[in-house]
C-alpha cells in the first residue's frame, strides 16, 4: 500500500480495517475513529484521490491504492483557511473534514460555483459536535474560489 507517498509493507489480517491499519500499525493517527461505523466521517481519507470512510474499508481491499491522509496533504491551503476561519474547536473531526473537503472539491465540476447550501450537503458526511460548521464552510469557500 502507498500511504502518503511512501510504499508501506503491511502484513495485516484481512479483518483489520484500513483505519486501524493506519492508526495502529503505521502510527498514522491523523484519521480519527469517531464511530467505527461510517456514521461520522472523522476517518475520512483519500484513496486514489477519492474520499472514503477508512473505518468501513478493509485494509486488504486497498492494497493497490494510494492512500492519502491529513498527514499526506500537508501543507494545503485548506489547513490555513480552517485556522483563519476557526473551522474547528476540539479538533477531533478536523482531519476528516479537511480530507473530505479536498475530495469534495475534486468531485465538483466547478468548485468555485458551489453555493453554501451545496457545500453543506456535500459535507454532511462529516459531523462536528462542537458545531464549527460555519467556519468550515467559510474555509472551503475561500479555497474553492
Amino acid at each position: 500500500m502507498r500511504v502518503n507517498g511512501t510504499d508501506e509493507k503491511l502484513d495485516v489480517e484481512p479483518w483489520v480495517s484500513l483505519l486501524d491499519a493506519l492508526r495502529e500499525r503505521l502510527g498514522v493517527t491523523g484519521p480519527k475513529k469517531g464511530c467505527d461505523q461510517g456514521a461520522c466521517g472523522a476517518c475520512t481519507v483519500l484513496a486514489d484521490g477519492v474520499r472514503i470512510n477508512a473505518c468501513l474499508a478493509l485494509a486488504v481491499q486497498y492494497a493497490d491504492k494510494e492512500i492519502t491522509t491529513i498527514e499526506g496533504v500537508t501543507p494545503h491551503p485548506l489547513q490555513e483557511a480552517f485556522v483563519r476561519h476557526d473551522g474547528f474547536q476540539c479538533g477531533y473531526c478536523t482531519s476528516g473534514q479537511i480530507c473530505s473537503a479536498i475530495g469534495m472539491l475534486n468531485e465538483a465540476e466547478d468548485p468555485a460555483a458551489l453555493t453554501d447550501a451545496e457545500i453543506r450537503e456535500r459535507m454532511s458526511g462529516n459531523l462536528c459536535r462542537c458545531g464549527a460548521y460555519n467556519g468550515i464552510v467559510e474555509a472551503i469557500k475561500e479555497v474553492a474560489r
Binding site: 491523523g30 498527514e71 500537508t74 501543507p75 490555513e80 480552517f82 485556522v83 483563519r84 478536523t94
Partner: peptide, 13 residues
C-alpha cells in the same frame, strides 16, 4: 487564531 490550529489541522495533535 488558535495557537493549536496548526497541530489540529495537520493531524499532529
Amino acid at each position: 487564531d488558535r495557537l493549536d490550529g496548526p497541530a489540529k489541522t495537520t493531524g499532529e495533535a
